[in-house]
């Protein structure tokens, strides 16, 4: 397996920043999700099979690996207008 790829991902009032991130297929991706809002968020994705509650100001590591090419959507379960996607190529 190729080495880990770390991708920073911020949650802001307006939404995920950046809203779309990319990774090559087959890598193990370490998403570093930072909550930059004053309220707790829940990073969630049915397509990535992940969920994490993250408190204000905190950064959580969320690993995803072995993904085939495709578009994997994620959202903030506590504020569902915030949406983003991981593009695996």
């Amino acid at each position: 397996m190729a080495e880990d790829r770390t991708i920073p991902l911020a949650v802001e009032e307006a939404g995920f920043a950046p809203a779309e991130i990319e990774a090559p297929a087959g890598t193990r991706v370490r998403l570093e999700v930072t909550n930059r809002t004053p309220a707790a968020i829940e990073f969630e994705s049915f397509e990535l099979n992940r969920e994490r509650v993250i408190q204000p100001g905190q950064t959580a590591a969320v690993y995803v690996s072995g993904l085939g090419p495709g578009r994997y959507e994620f959202f903030d379960d506590f504020h569902q207008q915030r949406r983003g996607a991981l593009l695996v190529r």
Binding site: R30, F46, N49, V64, S65, G66, L67
Partner: peptide
């Protein structure tokens, strides 16, 4: 699932199947 998300455990195969067409998680 938590151990996989933390990177301590390999999922072995990330997604064996998807039954989302039959029953969506939400």
């Amino acid at each position: 699932n938590k151990l996989i998300g933390l990177g301590y455990l390999s999922p072995i195969v990330a997604q064996v199947w998807s039954t989302a067409w039959l029953l969506r998680d939400d």
